[in-house]
């Protein structure tokens, strides 16, 4: 009395049809508007008048004009001769440890704080605002006329720092990096705070009964327990620093004199200002490769969660 189609094979086919029906809208949009463009960018980056070459990559990496240099820049002094890629690197070297550590320490301090959810919410607000507005605010707080920081520096007698930071090559990158700590701390704090809340209270209480100081508890119990979260925060922050664009555009336009350019900004210059799509694509691919190297850690971890 078995009906037609009642077999293990038909079951398998049915399950596939079902799965792909659920996936269809997502796969359609992703292929047209995400996967195809990614492939397209790679192909454009490798194309030049002589056919397929690495010419665009070589040109982009060896470029020395201040606004578009990736590595070494011929800028007119005031700032070190660094190109966009090195700016990203400096950004990462300062911003990742600073934000990660500050968020971690603050997250543990918050366990003692009255009104900690208010503190968390206040610090997180800067994560919610559009990043261009973040860039404008950075410009605002470092503005020579109305900004708090230049006034403060003036009050301290540091005349060199009592002017609009974003307008001078010596200080433009620094103002952006400091500003990005302000913008991004909420993320680090939120993730760390969730991780700290997950530590069983009994661990910390037991340590306290054993006579451990707050510092020892932090060092030997809290830090190891939240370490996976810390790594995640560090990698996410690094990814954000690599892709950074909006705040640079809004605060300094990469200037003055190319002193605060970043990879994504150079890519945009090639695309929108120079209309050189090959070089724009090559810059984008370089940026992609760097992000994927960093993201590999997160992908591996996500798949690790899978297997458990």
């Amino acid at each position: 009395m078995s009906r037609v189609g009642d077999s293990p094979l038909s079951l398998k086919i049915k399950e596939h049809v079902r799965a792909y029906l659920f996936l269809l809208p997502a796969l359609a949009l992703l292929s047209v508007f995400v996967i195809y463009p990614i492939a397209g960018t790679i192909s454009i980056s490798l194309r030049s008048e002589e056919g397929f070459t690495l010419g665009n990559y070589i040109a982009v990496v060896t470029e020395r004009s201040p606004t578009k240099a990736l590595i070494i820049s011929e800028n007119l002094g005031g700032a070190p001769p660094w190109g966009a890629l090195l700016h990203n690197a400096v950004w990462i070297l300062v911003h990742v440890p600073a934000t990660t550590a500050l968020g971690l320490v603050l997250a543990y301090m918050l366990t003692h704080v009255y009104g900690r959810s208010v503190v968390k919410s206040l610090i997180f607000v800067s994560m919610v605002i559009p990043m261009v507005v973040g860039g404008l605010i950075i410009r605002f707080i470092f503005d020579g006329q109305v900004g708090v920081i230049p006034r403060l520096m003036g009050g301290l007698g540091l005349e060199d720092l009592a002017r609009t930071w974003t307008a001078y090559p010596e200080t433009s990158l620094a103002s952006l990096i400091i500003g990005s700590i302000w913008l991004w701390l909420g993320f680090s704090l939120t993730i760390h705070s969730a991780a700290v809340d997950n530590i069983p209270r009994s661990y910390i209480e037991a340590a306290r009964i054993d006579g451990a100081s707050e510092l020892q508890i932090f060092r030997y119990i809290v830090v190891p327990a939240v370490w996976p979260a810390t790594l995640t925060v560090a990698v996410m922050t690094l990814l954000w620093d690599l892709k950074i664009f909006d705040i640079v555009y809004a605060a300094t336009q990469g200037g003055p004199g190319g002193s605060s350019t970043v990879l994504a900004y150079v890519m945009w210059l090639y695309f929108a200002r120079a209309l050189d799509y090959g070089k724009a694509a090559a810059t984008a691919v370089i940026l992609t490769i760097l992000t994927l190297v960093a993201a590999a850690y997160l992908v591996r971890r996500s798949l690790g969660v899978e297997k458990r």
Binding site: M1, S2, R3, D6, S7, P8, S10, L11
Partner: peptide, 8 residues
């Protein structure tokens, strides 16, 4: 009920 439902 006597009916093969193995893969139903």
């Amino acid at each position: 009920g006597g009916e093969d439902v193995t893969y139903r």
